[in-house]
Nucleic acid binder design. Structure first.
Length: 834
DNA sequence: GACCTGCTGCGGTGTG
């Protein structure tokens, strides 16, 4: 162990800490030293580094140093030290580990500091105690911090606060939780103008912006510190032995099960990441079937599995008794799983940052190499893996864009602040405008929000329950304790669809599934969930009672979840790889493996250059197919597909069906559609984008649905008491009622506006869509008649057919078609080159 | 027996 050399000017106290640090850890990395110095100089900042590089100590050590400078003499140490450091973490599960790491040196040096956490899990008695006296280090979540701010005594209790740390800032940035955090930070800074703010983040494409969002518009001296100490990431890919026979579509990846098994055999503990929850269930089942002897060493983990079971899995991971956990993004972050020595990514990686995050779950120690093994589910995913490796090498990472002006979050915050210390309008307005999110809030918008919490706005003014806040001589407060209680019960910006609970008869809660899935089952039917074979007994009160069945079989539930489009960064590299292949350049194991498939694409159609829009046309028995490849991710293709179908149908009156994936979309029309390259170019015009888009989508229904979240956050609808949550349906209908009332009687309601904006930005990615159209307008349109389905088109065609026929028939057709294409390809290959 | 496609996250009450 190397000891850190004392630097000139360091005090004894500093040396004490440094000694502890070197004894127990390692020589401080340069970035940690930089952070310590910046902190002690009174600066704020953002530190970015991969996981497992010691970011925590970069910011938890300097407050100790600072205190020791003040109290160098142990005999003069006070008995108790009031609050000095507030630590915000987005994950309950992280709070515990963090508190432990911070407490380690404190305990070791027997400092009179206390470290405590407060999350939703903290018991009522503990919380009551905390309300009397805060610990020296307080670890909490954004939501719990909001709640703290909603109690009148908080400011006085925090008087001695020196700094606030926001951990995993990249996870909060870009979400309404992030904005909630911004508002809370502004409050703290208003109270304590010299407060230092530090953020910890994974590496992002927009670090400078991430920093300025965190620190707000009033920040003076601030730094961005890079802890990117060349954390080594090794990306490997499992190459199918016979690419010619490897599927061209599909996402499960079970083809490579044998190879995955041998990977699992070679490592002590593996995290096997999949992209969907149902895929997790399917892979778990496949592993159980293939290796019954591993029954106790394989587990699964995803967001719909009950908390108890998930925590059990996390515990076993930590002690190292598991060989493999099949999981979703639920294990992307979280507890420090040091024993994990291998990470497998099943299927498309979708984004560069996500891959890095997942790779970082292994080798979770400074200096260790992170390894990730990629498993393609179909042939083209080999290209995506090649692309992600290249992007990692080049450091091309995605950005997370901050949320702008979400008024629902502001409305909630206004009530919280009124409930806490109360507020004066101009003071709070200035404070709110010091956040990045509301820096451009207009006077009118502010007035509207204040009016909304005091009267319920124009349309609700006759209902007293919406006069939540009252203005007494210029001070806004919440006098009604009932309203106060309801408000505290609805703090937060996360709203999830209520789901059917799955419970063993007279037994444990296993998790939740969607109503639509349970609705397809009859009592006696079996299904697989949470890794258990289950038989449905009955459904009552949003609970499905089940009993254990003998064999893992039957249906696997599917969930409607996020749609995770391929990121622009990764898409760009994918296009680049395809263009290289067009010129016959195949570098890397993945590209060499996928060569035969791409050569087929070249010979039956073509591979587009990055500045070309490829449109393939194929006349089949069921009509005209067009396959179009903007490579803009599935959300954009959803909007674009609908838009283009709408515009084409104006020229050729026929109904047009659309399917899409991350690479492109396809149009199918029963009648013959024939357009020239020039005509296609016109169809892709940016003109009238929004008008056409709203005309072809059911904008009103989308708006209603989006409004549900807004209504909940703004406190219009109450989600119900804990445990007896209202069903989605109930929540939907009451928020729908507000939506209708506002649309009719209060069309200028700013929350309605926000709903419209959110649909455009989130569900349709309008910004990216516009950008895509602009790019397309500069591109060359290449229209090609194809003789049969080439590899790029095949997955699109397959999902078409899937939408229209029953699943057995679909499988048959896809298989038949795949076989045919394979034979054609083989025949052509055996032909001597001309 | 092959086939299935879409993530995560937090918080709150009640009183004999």
């Amino acid at each position: 162990m190397t000891k850190a050399k004392p630097q000139p000017g360091e005090s004894d106290a500093t040396r004490t800490i440094l000694h502890w640090f070197t004894e127990h850890h390692w020589k401080p990395f340069p970035f940690q030293r930089t952070a310590w110095a910046a902190y002690l100089a009174g600066q704020s900042g953002l530190i970015h580094a991969p996981t497992g590089t010691g970011k925590t100590y970069a910011v938890s050590i300097p407050p100790l140093l600072e205190w020791l400078e003040e109290f160098p003499e142990p005999s003069a140490w006070p008995k108790t030290v009031p609050l000095r450091l507030l630590w915000i973490t987005p994950l309950r599960a992280l709070a515990n580990d963090t508190a432990k790491s911070i407490a380690a040196p404190i305990q070791e040096l027997k400092l009179p500091w206390t470290v405590e956490l407060r999350t939703g899990d903290t018991s009522a008695t503990r919380r009551a105690k905390q309300r009397e006296r805060f610990p020296t280090v307080f670890v909490t979540t954004p939501e719990s911090l909001s709640l703290l701010l909603s109690y009148p005594g908080t400011q006085a209790m925090m008087q001695s606060l020196r700094s606030v740390i926001v951990d995993e800032w990249h996870e909060l940035l870009g979400t309404k939780r992030g904005v909630q955090t911004e508002l809370c930070l502004a409050r703290l800074r208003h109270w304590f103008p010299t407060l230092r703010t530090w953020g910890l983040s994974a590496t992002l494409g927009n670090l400078e912006q991430a920093q300025s969002v965190l620190l707000g518009t009033r920040a003076s001296s601030a730094v961005v510190i890079s802890g990117d100490m060349k954390k080594r990431v090794k990306v490997e890919t499992l190459i199918p032995s016979n690419v010619e026979k490897f599927p061209w579509a599909g996402h499960l990846g079970l083809n490579l099960l044998p190879k995955v098994l041998s990977c699992l055999e070679q490592a002590r503990t593996t995290l096997l990441f999949t992209n969907t929850r149902s895929q997790t269930e399917i892979w778990f089942r496949a592993l159980q079937a293939a290796k019954p002897e591993w029954a106790d060493e394989v587990a699964l983990h995803h967001g719909s599995i009950g908390r108890a079971a998930r925590e059990e899995v996390e515990k076993r991971l930590r002690v190292g008794t598991l060989r493999c956990v099949v999981c979703t993004a639920s294990l992307d972050l979280g507890v420090d799983f040091s024993p994990v020595d291998q990470v497998i990514q099943m299927g498309a990686p979708k984004g560069v940052a996500r891959m890095l995050q997942r790779a970082g779950r292994s080798g979770h120690q400074p200096g260790e190499v992170s390894r990730i093994v990629c498993v393609p589910a179909h042939a083209l995913e080999l290209v995506e893996f090649a692309a992600v490796r290249e992007a990692i090498g080049a450091g091309e990472l995605e950005s997370r864009l901050p949320v702008e002006k979400p008024l629902d979050v502001l409305v909630q915050h206004l009530v919280s602040v009124a409930l806490g210390s109360g507020f004066r309008e101009d003071e709070l307005l200035e404070e709110v405008r010091s956040t990045h999110a509301f820096r451009e809030l207009t006077d009118q918008e502010w007035r509207w929000c204040v009016d909304f919490v005091t009267r319920g706005g124009e349309s609700l003014k006759v209902y007293p329950q919406f006069s939540r806040v009252q203005n007494l001589d210029g001070v806004f407060t919440v006098p009604d304790p009932f309203i106060a209680r309801l408000h505290r019960m609805s703090v937060g910006t996360i709203s999830s669809d209520s789901a059917v609970a799955v419970r063993v008869v007279r037994g444990a809660l296993l998790g939740t599934i969607e109503e639509s899935f349970i609705g397809r089952l009859k009592p006696g039917n079996t299904f697989t969930f949470a890794g258990h074979a289950l038989e449905l007994v009955r459904v009552r009160d949003m609970t499905a009672y089940v009993r254990r069945a003998k064999k893992l079989s039957g249906l696997v539930p599917q969930w409607m979840g996020g749609r995770m489009p391929l990121s622009s960064q990764l898409a760009r590299v994918v296009r680049r790889k395809l263009a290289e292949a067009r010129r016959g350049v195949y570098t890397g194991k993945e590209m060499r493996a996928v060569k035969p498939i791409l050569e087929i694409q070249k010979s039956w159609s073509l591979l587009p250059e990055p500045d070309e829009l490829l449109i393939e046309r194929l006349q089949m028995r069921d009509g005209t197919h067009h396959f179009i490849y903007p490579f803009a991710g599935r959300l954009v293709h959803e909007g674009l597909g609908a838009l283009i179908a709408h515009r084409v149908s104006k020229l050729f009156p026929a109904s047009i069906a659309v399917t899409l994936n991350d690479y492109g979309f396809a149009l199918l029309s029963a009648s013959a559609i024939s357009l020239s390259e020039g005509e296609w170019k016109e169809i892709f015009t940016e003109e009238n984008l929004l008008v056409d888009l709203l005309a072809c989508l059911n904008a009103a229904e989308l708006g209603r649905r989006q409004f549900r979240e807004i209504a909940r956050i703004a406190g219009l609808v109450f989600q119900g008491y804990p445990g007896s949550g209202k069903s989605t349906h109930q929540l939907q209908s009451s928020s729908g009622l507000f939506y209708d009332v506002f649309t009719r009687y209060d069309p200028d309601n700013l929350l309605l506006n926000q709903a419209r904006r959110e649909i455009l930005n989130r569900q349709l990615e309008v910004v990216r869509l516009k950008k895509t159209l602009a790019e397309i307008s500069a591109m060359k349109t290449v229209l090609t008649e194809i003789p049969r389905l080439p590899p790029l088109a095949f997955p699109l065609w397959a999902s078409f057919t899937q939408a229209n026929v029953s699943s057995e028939k679909w499988a048959e057709r896809v298989k038949r078609m795949a076989l045919q294409l394979e034979e054609t390809a083989a025949k052509e290959k055996s032909k001597p080159a001309p």
